[in-house]
Amino acid sequence: MTALTPPATVTADGVIVIDHLTKRFGPVLAVDDLSFTVRPGRVTGFLGPNGAGKTTTLRILLGLVRATAGTATIGGSTYAHFTQPMRTVGAALEAASFHPGRTALDHLRVYAPQAGVSDARCREVLDFVGLGPVANRRAGGFSLGMRQRLALATTLLGDPQVLLLDEPANGLDPEGIAWLRGLLRHLAAEGRTVLVSSHVLSEVEQTVDDVVIIARGALVHSSSLAALAALAEPSVRIASPDAAGLTRLIELAGWADRLEPAASTRPGVAVLHRVTAAEIGARAFAAGLELHELTPRDVGLEDTFLRLVGEGAIPGVAEPRLEGVVR
């Protein structure tokens, strides 16, 4: 971690504020009255399905796209007002922003004057992301994982207080992902603001402290990861040779509305939500019902995430159809 020195002043400078942000591309509402805050010293996951408006939000924050309404600021000012933005904000929006004929080192040297750094620093960050041995190779021949590392090196060039990374784990091998995870945790521990976007929660689950979840351009959830986990609904799968007895038990206990309909199609098998295995076990024992299965199912964060982004689907936006395509 020698390539990075902690920022001189760890203050509220690194706070990202998205305030009632709206962006319309013609008839398409890409960002819809979105508001959230990202704090320094933590890794924040910016999550949502493809097309949810994550990249558009980041591009507005970075002054590349003009907002229709609302503001997006970093440390209280808009991106256009930074005199040496690369020293404050390091952003990687896509892994392909390289001239294929330029070497990795030259790619960094191009931006070095604007980041106010020397060629030595360029070599330093290349070594840091593991691209030292290929510093003089042209970026056109790089794999996706190497491009991700070069993009990351570019963001680190100016030793910025704020890091904004769009899908940084894309194309990295498991070793690379573990390394990235450690790096992001380290950067946040130094007091930097780290915002990482992804369309899969499981990809960033082990890295992030906070989550901001958007769908269809609007905020659906913003909290710490722990608070998100608390939203998870436990469920229990039960099976009994006495199907009628099982149905009776569920009705008597008043759990009919907690049945998962799709999973309870076979007689004698049921999946119940918001009930613990202990409660069901006690009821069955008292009723003398023979049970062959009583399995608590651990609901992953991913399920909670999918439930959140799936809520309130827009009428007219069709679910993906398989019939007719897959035969």
């Binding site: 002054g63 590349l64 952003a91 896509e94 922003s97 390289f98 001239h99 931006y111």
Partner: peptide
Amino acid sequence: TSEFRHQTITPTLLAEPR
């Protein structure tokens, strides 16, 4: 044109928003 062809216009304008 190569800035647009290779999308380097994004890092370019990140380094110099003016």
